[in-house]
């Protein structure tokens, strides 16, 4: 079985982001960019499944401008066997990404498609669900545990839901989106970074895949969130109880 993993390049999680003065978006020039943390977890899970002997190949795919190749190289250095880069503008919405991924699934025919549950830039949490719908595959979102049964061709997954942990059983092929507690992604070692340089990256254009960019959303402006007015540091529990009772009136 082949596993396909979708990965996205985003502003590194540790960077304190800045809103552009013209309110057109968030500054990404001269800012450290990295693989989206949820995508790292998805890739790590795919690699572990392969290492356990349940998959034969891990293909990393990414959709974006040329700089996304760097992120794909990171994925190859982590252990993906090969990569696919779909050349596209940076700002496209999940529905178009989902259509591109569907087109790639039609070409590659993986038994499992893994994605992060969301990207930490736009926080949309949509792409996995959308591509599952387009493929008419079952979906397991927000996974914190994945167990494959090769004989029965099913995946049993634990999902982090509002009320606790839900367990679902999915017929393969399926789409799984990964949550934070699924695993701890590995670091790429230097020898693997060197090895990754010779691994193949295949390139597609949107025309090759016959996908048109759907533009039914327009970002009007991006602004800073309102600041909370600064509070006070108190000196004792008595003072705290007094403030909560008589000033804030919440107890």
């Amino acid at each position: 079985m082949k596993i396909m993993v979708a990965i996205k390049r985003v502003v590194d999680y540790a960077v304190k982001i800045r809103v552009k003065p013209d309110k057109s978006g968030v500054e990404t020039k001269n800012v450290k960019m990295s693989m989206n943390p949820f995508c790292e977890i998805a890739l790590e899970e795919a690699l572990r499944i392969k290492e356990s002997g349940l998959a034969s190949e891990v293909v990393a795919v990414s959709v974006g401008p040329t700089q996304f190749l760097e992120t794909l190289r990171t994925g190859l250095a982590m252990g993906a066997d090969r990569a696919i880069h779909v050349e596209a503008p940076e700002k496209i919405y999940p529905l178009t990404i989902a259509k591109i991924l569907k087109a790639l699934v039609d070409v590659e025919k993986p038994g499992l498609l893994l994605l992060g549950k969301q990207a930490i830039d736009n926080d949309q949490n949509q792409t996995g669900q959308m591509v599952a719908g387009l493929l008419k595959w079952p979906q397991g979102t927000f996974a914190s545990k994945v167990v494959l049964d090769k004989e029965k061709q099913v995946a049993t997954i634990d999902r982090e839901v509002d009320g606790g942990i839900e367990t679902l059983c999915l017929d393969l092929p399926a789409v799984i989106t990964t949550d934070l507690r699924l695993n701890q992604p590995r670091y790429a070692t230097l020898p693997n970074i060197m090895k990754a340089k010779s691994k193949p990256i295949k390139k597609f254009t949107l025309q090759d895949l016959n996908v048109e960019i759907k533009s039914d959303l327009e970002v009007v402006e991006v602004t800073e969130p309102p600041k909370r007015k600064s509070g006070v540091i108190l000196s004792s529990v008595d003072e705290l109880i007094d403030k909560l009772k008589n000033e804030a009136r919440v107890i």
Partner: peptide, 23 residues
Amino acid sequence: SGSFGKNILPRAAALLDISPITD
């Protein structure tokens, strides 16, 4: 936008060829 809505709405939107808006 709890785990119920986030799980279902994007999938339904894809079937209708619509870009949904989260959160």
